[in-house]
Design a protein around this nucleic acid. Sequence first.
DNA 1: GCCAACGTTGGC
DNA 2: GCCAACGTTGGC
Length: 164
Amino acid sequence: MDTFSTLPRPPLNYWLMKSEPDECSIDDLARAPHATVPWIGVRNYQARNFMRDAMRVGDGVLFYHSSCPQPGIAGLAEVASTAYPDASQFDPASPYHDPKSAQDAPRWLNVDVRFLRKTRLLSLPEMRAEPVLAGMRVLQAGNRLSITPVTAAEWQCLLALLEP
DNA sequence: GCCAACGTTGGC
DNA sequence: GCCAACGTTGGC
């Protein structure tokens, strides 16, 4: 019997995180140093709060390709850090520059995301065909939130669909 | 290019 | 604090 199995342990969470493949594709993530990228550029308070308040190291991440010819889930990743100030908000040369954010009170945060593996491209129509996934935010019309929570049931269903 | 959805801005 | 106008996202 595993002695450690009785120790209290915070449950992991699951997330879907959108990335435009022109900006950072699943292949870009795989090739990044340590196969890890800082998830910079989030400028939405709800998405920021997910990173700040709910993400833990080791949380599962569905890497989603958005605004591209074949939108859908392209790979699996994991949360590799807790949230810390997003440096790009203070860089005037960055498209993510926020002149209203102060150095001593950073408005925007990011976590690091680490590559786990590429999957086949799981398309939106395929996801819509699964009743278990019907409630996913990414399937709702007009959804713009770039980070959304995924339930354990949705996660299990998606992993099964992604089996090679 | 269209358009639905939704966050942000700014006048009052 | 309200709310109309505007801008952005993002699938189709």
